[in-house]
Design a protein around this nucleic acid. Structure first.
Lengths: 252, 252
DNA sequence: AGTGTTTATCGTCAGGAAGACGACTATGAT
DNA sequence: ATCATAGTCGTCTTCCTGACGATAAACACT
């Protein structure tokens, strides 16, 4: 039976990106300002159309590189090479999510260390890192006193889903190291957990947990650095990707 | 700026279903035989095109009802009403996954109790419950001596992802009850875990764990039934959806 | 030099949960 | 009556966690 184009309705397929990082003790997401209707001038998640010959992951990696300069490393890549972690998040396909046409968006979640400055088409004023609480609050006013408009489309929902994925996934995987540079201290890793979960963790118990889990952290031998206080050992992420038993997220 | 159809390539969007159940102590998935090319005559996961005015979840629920007669209950629905659990799994969009055209498939995972007999377009010979190991083994021979062909398209990968999702999700959620009828015993629930994980669990420790987790199981008062041996208390799924601490999957 | 501050790291202790199993109970089958 | 089968209750040991005391090694002052 030959291919019959009338047998199915055509869709546009996009990828949207939830790019998370930790800056100044807060979990932040990359937002870009929309230059055109609909939602012109509003903040949105970065994203774009999937090209005709492109895999979904390729499209997400391409958009990520275009927006941040980060190259995603394949989850298969063993060692932490300071590229961003990239994984598929979920797909959003409400018929009315884009008023122009039928668009199905395959959202991806990317986790990056703090380093990069955002750039959207070379124009820095149209891209920024914003604390996720700020992007998710509906109505009210941001830190700068400017009234906060909700994200465009269903991007608030996508962002919330991405944040929730990140929060739960660092419990039982070594994913939190994706927020850290190649070499990092136990304290830096702890501050990642604290920022992502929005809680305070006991430094001693945290240290015991992460250093006691085999394969999670490997000391780089080369040892100290500073962040104030006593020098700390430097580690890099070990081969272990699953954390068993998991790191427990405190209640309440 | 008006909508410009030439700005993006058109895609076909489908939903594919990983429908799992537990029968005769084995984790089984619903497979349908393809009636047309490509992969004519091969087994595949049930699925179909998303309609122009349909949400992705609606499309998955519709396909599920068409193939099994099961109606999915919304995850928001509180009580276990013997409908199937349905959730989005992942999206597959390799440019070459369908030789005819560019198809993006949003796979969904459904978990159902044992009861229903499969029916695909009214023809029972074109649909069956098959143990997932049998569907996933490449080459070799099935229980009936018939040579086993791999599933059509990338459905082996989708099935494997769905099985893995189910295996990990019953660890920390009450999802295993979706494999049980409305009322069930602790032993029946344990046999679900054993079938999904492919391990043996200690009946005493399992009983202590599930009855000791508040909100997980509620006794129906009406109490006994038989499955051989001493009568057991009947329970139904409680309101708790998260299992903390999780049920531990035995190693090795 | 001495003192205070900050962060890192090691240790101790009590409570909770899980694995291993023993023991007892209530059915149906022989 | 005896056995086989499942369900349910306890016990004991071990491991992990949370709470928290104590020490160590840097820097910023005075």
């Amino acid at each position: 039976m030959p291919y019959d184009p009338s047998a199915f309705p055509p869709f546009a397929v996009t990828v949207d990106l939830v790019v998370l990082t930790v800056r100044r003790h807060a979990l932040c997401a990359l937002a870009v300002r929309r230059g055109e209707a609909p939602f012109q001038g509003r903040w949105a998640l970065p994203g774009g159309f999937v090209r005709a010959d492109e895999d979904l992951t390729q499209a997400a990696a391409r958009e990520l590189a275009e927006e941040t300069g980060l190259h995603a490393h394949d989850p298969a890549t063993p060692a932490h090479d300071n590229g961003a972690h990239l994984e598929q998040l979920a797909t959003y396909g409400d018929p009315k999510r884009d008023p122009r046409m039928r668009v199905v968006s395959v959202a991806h979640l990317a986790l990056a260390p703090d380093l990069p400055a955002p750039r959207a088409g070379g124009d820095a004023s149209n891209a920024r890192w914003a604390p996720v609480e700020e992007l998710l609050q509906h109505g009210g006013y941001g830190r700068d006193g400017e009234p906060v408009a909700p994200l465009a489309f269903d991007h608030a929902q996508i962002l919330a889903d991405g944040v929730e994925r990140a929060r739960s996934k660092i419990e039982y995987s070594s994913l939190a190291t994706a927020f850290c540079p190649t070499e990092f201290t136990v304290g830096e890793l702890r501050r990642v957990y604290e920022a992502v979960w929005g809680v305070a963790l006991d430094p001693r118990n945290f240290h015991r947990k992460v250093t006691g889990t085999p394969g999670f952290l490997v000391p780089t031998g080369g040892t100290t650095t500073r962040q104030g206080g006593r020098p700390a050992q430097l580690f890099r992420a070990g081969g272990a990707t699953l954390l068993n038993p998991p790191m427990l997220r405190p209640e309440v």
